[in-house]
């Protein structure tokens, strides 16, 4: 749908009407098994798009494809970079895609050990992306790493500890700090609160909510927890057997689900 510039003065300025990311016709096969089929969506600047569905519905596959980690069997992922150029994520050179993944994009894995380098200190983990972004001054890099540990509520005297000495919740927060230190424009979150106990989960949700709110970054959030989706995302897509069965405003999808599967999902969970 074409969007015209908002000339409404009473409404606050919108974050922009052009999508940051556009995925179209994503289909992927693992061997002969189809993981996702004809998935299409857009992500706009400053919004969180939730992706829910049961295990094996293809959520993580879609996330891996749109984040450039895995090429789809067919389909296109377009990304509008900070300079304004539109890039076809899977036609870029490997080096270019990696650079993008370390600067403008972020990926928070469900298991923080997948997203962290466990062999170097926490500070080095946070500094890693800064260095690949071109920062060279040791004091400055260390200062920013320290600053980010503070923002994710990790005591700064743990800066030089190895991540192996961190608890699960701390590891996840460290992974978030590592991703956000380069001020990415788009972050992919794969079950960021999965496997954490409830109090740690609440802390982490609060952190993600605050950071996305203040940094105005866009995110694609994969979760199977509808309450998490309601809390964090503005728009929601429901996947089943690799297909998107319903999409819309998060509260609309959860309060007035149209598809039989969404109705099942909503009625099967505790009050969300």
């Amino acid at each position: 749908m074409p969007k015209t510039a908002r000339d409404n003065l009473t409404a606050p300025p919108q974050n922009g009407d052009r999508p940051l990311l556009l995925a179209e016709g994503l289909t992927h096969y693992y061997g002969t098994k189809r993981a996702c089929r004809d998935v299409r969506f857009e992500v706009y600047p400053g919004e969180i798009l939730g992706l829910v569905g049961e295990s094996g519905s293809g959520k993580t596959t879609v996330l891996k494809i749109v984040s450039g980690q895995m090429a789809p069997s067919s389909g296109t992922v377009l990304y509008r970079e900070a300079g304004g150029a539109v890039l076809d994520l899977h036609k870029l050179s490997e080096g270019r895609r990696r650079l993008l993944a370390r600067t403008e994009l972020g990926f928070v894995h469900q298991n923080p050990r997948d997203g962290l380098n466990m062999n170097v200190s926490a500070g080095a983990n946070v500094a890693d992306r800064l260095l690949s972004g071109g920062a060279r001054l040791y004091a400055e890099v260390r200062g920013r790493a320290r600053d980010w540990l503070e923002r994710v509520e990790i005591a700064t005297d743990r800066l030089d500890d190895r991540p192996g000495q961190y608890s699960g919740g701390m590891l996840q927060r460290l992974q978030i700090a590592r991703n956000l230190v380069t001020s990415p424009r788009l972050v992919f979150l794969d079950e960021p609160t999965g496997g954490l106990d409830v109090s740690v989960q609440a802390k982490l949700l609060d952190l993600i909510r605050n950071l996305t709110g203040t940094l105005k970054l866009a995110a694609v959030l994969v979760t199977h927890d509808l309450a998490v989706a309601r809390l964090l995302s503005q728009r929601l897509m429901v996947m089943k057997e690799g297909k998107v069965v319903e999409a819309g405003l998060t509260d609309r999808v959860l309060d007035d689900p149209q598809d039989p599967y969404t109705q099942l999902l909503v009625s099967s969970t505790l009050e969300a």
Binding site: R6, D7, N8, L9, A11, E47, Q234, R235, G248, R252
Partner: peptide, 21 residues
């Protein structure tokens, strides 16, 4: 504001903007 939104036609983002404004 200056325009009229028809809810049956509005996209999710239209409604978000409507709620904000």
């Amino acid at each position: 504001g200056e325009k009229t939104v028809a809810m049956s036609q509005a996209s999710a983002r239209d409604i978000l903007a409507l709620r904000l404004g």
